[in-house]
């Protein structure tokens, strides 16, 4: 199962847990699995087919460009981060 690191500001939705395990071959499946256990989390992370405005999702160190279609490996580490741009 992939490990999803929950940022402090979303831990109200996971009962304080800082990381939770969830199964899925894509980010969408992982979020669906999480939503079943921690209702409200998916709505904070995703909007439509994409990541919610102002956020980014890192899977194994890479900021995904595929939104919810991003592939997830069984041992993946998933982080929810602020979006960054550049100059």
């Amino acid at each position: 199962m992939a490990t999803v690191f929950i940022p402090p500001q979303m831990r109200d939705l996971t009962g304080g847990a800082d990381r939770v395990a969830a199964a899925g071959a894509t980010l969408r499946e992982v979020l669906r699995a999480l939503e079943a256990v921690h209702p409200g989390l998916a709505a904070r992370v995703a909007l439509g087919e994409g990541i919610a405005p102002g956020l980014a999702v890192s899977i194994d160190g890479a900021i995904t460009a595929r939104g919810l279609l991003a592939p997830v490996q069984p041992e993946s580490e998933i982080h929810i981060l602020p979006a960054i741009g550049g100059g």
Partner: peptide, 18 residues
């Protein structure tokens, strides 16, 4: 705060915490 919105209008648009 990572998508959770405050109740009052504010000049503080974002609060991040790590």
């Amino acid at each position: 705060e990572m998508g959770k919105l405050g109740k009052q209008p504010s000049n503080i648009a974002v609060h991040l915490h790590f």
